[in-house]
């Protein structure tokens, strides 16, 4: 606790960096994965292939990807962009599946009703299917958000500092307290971010929290 208070400003700086390194990939991942997931859902044959490709991408170990990326992107080795790109790739990989599941969870009868009321294909996707897939999409975002915050801790291994720096630093100095505080900070950050998504979900999907719903 003492150490935590002594180093509060440093930790706050690291946490702030960590937050940005996590939020950007989650948001980018969502924006990219939703259209891919929609295509995967609508396009029966290619759809399962898209989802399989996504889950294969997820199995690429992160560390080498981080190391190789600069030579592919033309970025410098210490550029935080590398971390953001890698985390975005994983976020997309996970979220494509939950987006496809989400669109799959929308009742065919409701889609049919929307079609019969004269929604065009585009209006139907945006105004009916997207909001109704919302709960599953939100669940996907929450899983991705938590694991992104946790995964981002490897970035100090390639020289981009964030809360993970507390692990590498603590490891080198054999100082357990620093690592424990790092873990606690990461978990708290992940939970706070999770709370943010839940609240955003409440605001965006008021029909889910009505009283007396049967």
């Amino acid at each position: 606790m003492r150490w935590f208070l002594d180093n509060w400003t440093d930790i706050r700086g690291l946490a702030w960096r960590h937050l940005w390194l996590s939020i950007v990939p989650v948001v980018l991942g969502f924006v990219l994965a939703v259209p891919i997931g929609y295509v995967a859902h609508r396009w029966r044959l290619g759809g399962s292939a898209l989802v399989s490709i996504a889950s294969v991408v997820y199995t690429i170990p992160s560390l080498p990807l981080l190391v190789i990326l600069p030579s592919l992107l033309g970025t410098t080795f210490l550029d935080p962009t590398n971390v953001i790109v890698v985390l975005t790739i994983y976020a997309v990989a996970v979220m494509v599946r939950s987006a496809a599941d989400g669109f799959g969870s929308v009742s065919e009868a409701v889609v049919d009703a929307a079609r019969a009321s004269g929604y065009s294909a585009w209006q139907r996707a945006v105004q009916v299917e997207l909001p109704l897939a919302g709960p599953v999409l939100l669940a996907g975002v929450r899983v991705v958000s938590v694991s992104t915050v946790s995964l981002a801790t490897i970035s100090p291994l390639i020289g981009v500092s964030n809360l993970g720096s507390l692990f590498t630093d603590g490891f080198q100095r054999s100082f357990a307290t620093e690592i424990v505080i790092g873990i606690v900070c990461v978990v708290v950050l992940a939970l706070l971010l999770d709370l943010l998504w839940v609240l955003l979900g409440r605001v965006a999907m008021p029909w889910l929290s009505v009283r007396g719903a049967r």
């Binding site: 929450r142 899983v143 938590v146 694991s147 915050v149 946790s150 995964l151 801790t153 490897i154 291994l157 993970g164 507390l166 692990f167 590498t168 603590g170 490891f171 054999s174 100082f175 357990a176 690592i179 424990v180 790092g182 873990i183 990461v186 978990v187 992940a190 939970l191 999770d194």
Partner: peptide, 19 residues
Amino acid sequence: TGALRALPTLGLLTLVVIW
């Protein structure tokens, strides 16, 4: 499960190594 997902693997690893 949410909290476990948040536990950073690298942090756990370094911590247990020290202990």
